[in-house]
């Protein structure tokens, strides 16, 4: 390898970094969503759903605990095959809501939302066309994901500030020392 080829390689590297910098500088100012998979509108619905599954009280609810963040993160990762279902079903959930209640889901009051979701869970809307998905089974999946986001380890994007452990009065991080000294 001669010295010139090294310098050329460095140039290529530098150019690539430079081009990257310029490209990113170009993005500056354009509105970006905090989420990867969910649009701001979808995230708003998931926020509302998360608060229904785990309502806020003296401890954070699903929304505040970052459940939506958990779901979004997993939909772009381990659960990526479920992203199309989420997109379709969130749309359908809102459409059915408008048909039945004449309002968007997020515009319903808390108790009406609960009632609607109980109907979904009970299978009342399973005959409706949710873009090929079944309403109640989507709800089951979502329920599971909310529980994981709220009660799972914070490293996956939910359970902000370890809130669920504190709620359950579980020491976390553990208070267990070594054996001898």
């Amino acid at each position: 390898m001669n010295p010139k080829s090294i310098s050329r390689r460095n140039f290529i590297k530098m150019s690539a970094i430079g081009a990257g910098c310029l490209y990113i500088a170009g993005c500056a100012g354009s509105p970006v969503s905090y989420h990867y998979i969910l649009t701001p509108w979808e995230a708003e619905i998931v926020d509302a759903l998360a608060d229904q599954i785990i309502p806020p009280d003296e401890y954070a609810g699903g929304r505040e605990a970052g459940v939506t963040n958990y779901i979004d993160k997993q939909l772009s990762g381990f659960f990526n095959e479920q992203a199309p279902m989420y997109k379709a079903c969130l749309k359908a959930l809102d459409e059915t809501c408008k048909e039945v209640y004449g309002k968007e889901f997020t515009a319903l009051d808390f108790d009406t939302q609960t009632e609607y979701l109980e109907d979904i869970q009970g299978g009342k809307y399973n005959s409706a066309d949710w873009y090929g998905y079944t309403a109640s089974s989507f709800f089951g999946t979502l329920r599971g994901h909310c529980m994981q986001g709220f009660y799972g380890s914070p490293r996956h994007g939910g359970n902000k500030n370890f809130v669920s452990y504190r709620m359950m009065k579980l020491d976390y991080p553990y208070l267990v020392g070594r054996n001898v000294h």
Partner: peptide, 20 residues
């Protein structure tokens, strides 16, 4: 904690305030 969220007496609510 997550495993426990699936443990409820029969007939209990699986989500919402009662569950929490």
């Amino acid at each position: 904690p997550y495993l426990f969220s699936g443990i409820r007496p029969p007939g209990s609510k699986r989500w919402g305030k009662e569950h929490k």
